Structures are given as structure tokens and as C-alpha cells.
Simulated scan of single mutants.
Amino acid sequence: MFLQITGYMTLIGLTLYLGLRPVSGRYFVDMATYYNYFQNYSLGAHVTSSKDVVFHYFMKFSSHFMTAHGFFLLMDIIYIYPLYLFSKKYFKQYWYYSFLVLIVSFSFYSYGTNGIRNGAATSLFVLGLCFPENKIKTGICFITAALFHKSLTLPIGAYLLTLMYNNPKTYLIAWLAAIPVSLVAGSVFVSLFSSLGFDDRLAGYLTGQGNLDVPVYTGFRWDFIFYSSFAVFAGWYFIIKKGFHDTFYFKILNIYLICNAFWILVIRAPFSNRFAYLSWFLMGIVIMYPILKQPLFKNHQLFISKIITVYFLFTFLMYFVYYN
């Protein structure tokens, strides 16, 4: 009962805290851009953007009957509530453990306040994973996610690939192989992917010509690979060492490995963190799923609490020590 009450208080409190934040381009950067779009739509402006047009029509539709603050609250409901639904569906009475790990993940706050369209799109993808028995609902969620942000075509493509081949050992080897390949020929992949017909914004992320708000870091990001390896190690450990077998978990892990391997190949791109997030949003699920589905350790509850504590501390140190 304590976990349930605490979980619902966290769900409601966090949604209101993020959704009712003040409009600020200084602290939340892209929020100011969305605010200007919303205000223009509320005054009757037409949708002129040709990129992620469904999101813009959704914003324009919302501007007819709610304020900008109401819209940002709605976006954070779309961002946070699917994480609760996923946790509730797969982990039942232990849903709060999963939900807690997801909201203390490294990129959670940034994509709830700054890159809100990308964050909402990834959560719609997670929502699609809640209906493995209903391909129509899954398809609707995935298509909506891609229409909100085109970058979601990568995890959607990875999902489709796992329907054809779902052996995690192969994808683990491929992830490991991507590191030396990127070290040797990373610039080749950056040039290749930037010339394959991506939209201008996505190509801008790869070439460093995008009008973005974040500092530009280039080079081989060993720190990001170290962070990404947590989920890779967890998947390897639970499947190979502990013998955990769950077809759905294999699928989640393989989607993570495919998307993260793609990011490793373009890791030298100035804004490769945008691609890293296309796998990172699944990291909490990859780490927590096996230990919440099956008692794999002695003092299992204590082990879960240790994992959550370490996961949170890493996020805390990354934000306030490493990047500060």
C-alpha cells in the first residue's frame, strides 16, 4: 500500500511540477520556441512547417481551447503517463520501482522541459509497447510517435527488425563491433547517414549545422559509451549469466542495442546526444525488467533498492558533478 500511495503521489506531483513550470527560454531553451508557435496559432496563424506537421496541427488544435500553460501540461501528461502505464502493465504491484527508475534517468528531465516533442514521441513509442497482443494499437502509437518526431523511425525500424530476428546474442556482438568500427571509420558513417535523405534538421544534427541550443561536443564520446554500457551489461548479465528468458525482454534489449549501435557509428557528430536518446529512453526498462519479473537474487527487494540507488546517484553525479 505504501508503494502504491507513494507512486501515485509521485506521478501526479511530477506531472504538475514539470507541466506547470514557467515559460522560459533561458532555463528550458526550446520551450520558448514552442511557446511562440503556440501563441501564433492561438492568434490564427496557419501551419507552415513541413516537418513533423502532425505535431504542429496538434498544437494549433490545442490553441483553440487551452492556454500555453495548459498545452505544456498536456505535453508532460503525454510524456509521463505512458511510462506509468507501461510499468503498471508489466510489473503490477511493483510498478513504482520501474516508474521511479524511468523518471530518474539521465535524460528524463531534459526531454520533459526542453526537447518536449522528442520526449513525447518516445513515450508514445513506449505506449505502443503496452499492446503486444494488439498490432493495430501498437501501429497507431508508433505512427503517431513518428509523426510527432521523425527520429522515432529508428526505434520503430529496430522493433520491426526484432519481429524478424530476435536473438540478443547477435545484437550484443553487433553492439560491441560498432565501437572499433566507429573508431576506425566513424567519420565515414557521419557523412553517409547525413547524405541519405534525412530531413534538414536531422542532417543538421549530424553535420553540426543545426540551430541548436546545446553546447557542441565532438570526438569519440567514451563517457556516453560508458553510460550506455550499463544497459548492455545488464542485458548480457541477466540473459547469459542468469539464464533469464523472456521474448518481450529480448525485443526491448535488441531495440536498445540497435539504436545505440547506430548512435555509436555517428558518435563524432556534434549533436550525437540527440541520437543517443533514441536508445537511452529504454535504459531503465532494460535494467529493471528482469529483476521485477523474476526473483533472481537472494534478498531480492534489497537488491532492487540498491540498483535504484546506484542508478539515481549516477544521474545526480552526471548532472551536478561531471557536467557542472
Rank of each mutant, 00 (worst) to 15 (best):
Y8A: 08
M9K: 12
I12A: 07
L14M: 09
R26C: 09
N36I: 11
V53T: 15
V54P: 06
H56D: 10
F61G: 08
F61R: 15
S62W: 07
S62Q: 10
F65H: 12
A68V: 09
A68H: 05
L73V: 07
D76G: 02
D76W: 04
I103V: 10
I103E: 03
S105Y: 11
G112Y: 02
N118T: 13
G128A: 09
F131A: 06
F131G: 04
L152P: 00
G157P: 00
A158V: 00
N166W: 04
N167S: 10
P168F: 05
L176E: 02
L183G: 09
V188W: 14
F189P: 00
S195C: 06
L196I: 05
G204V: 02
G204H: 07
Y205T: 04
G208M: 07
G210W: 15
Y227I: 11
S228P: 04
A231N: 05
V232D: 04
V232I: 14
G235K: 01
F238S: 02
I240A: 10
I240Y: 13
H245C: 06
T247R: 12
L253P: 02
I255Y: 08
Y256F: 15
Y256V: 07
I258F: 12
N260D: 15
F262S: 06
I264K: 04
I264Y: 06
A269F: 02
A269V: 00
A269S: 13
P270G: 04
L282R: 05
I287D: 03
I287T: 05
M288W: 10
I291F: 03
I291E: 01
L292C: 01
P295H: 15
K298W: 15
Q301M: 13
L302H: 14
I304Q: 06
K306N: 13
V310G: 06
T315H: 15
L317E: 13
L317Q: 12
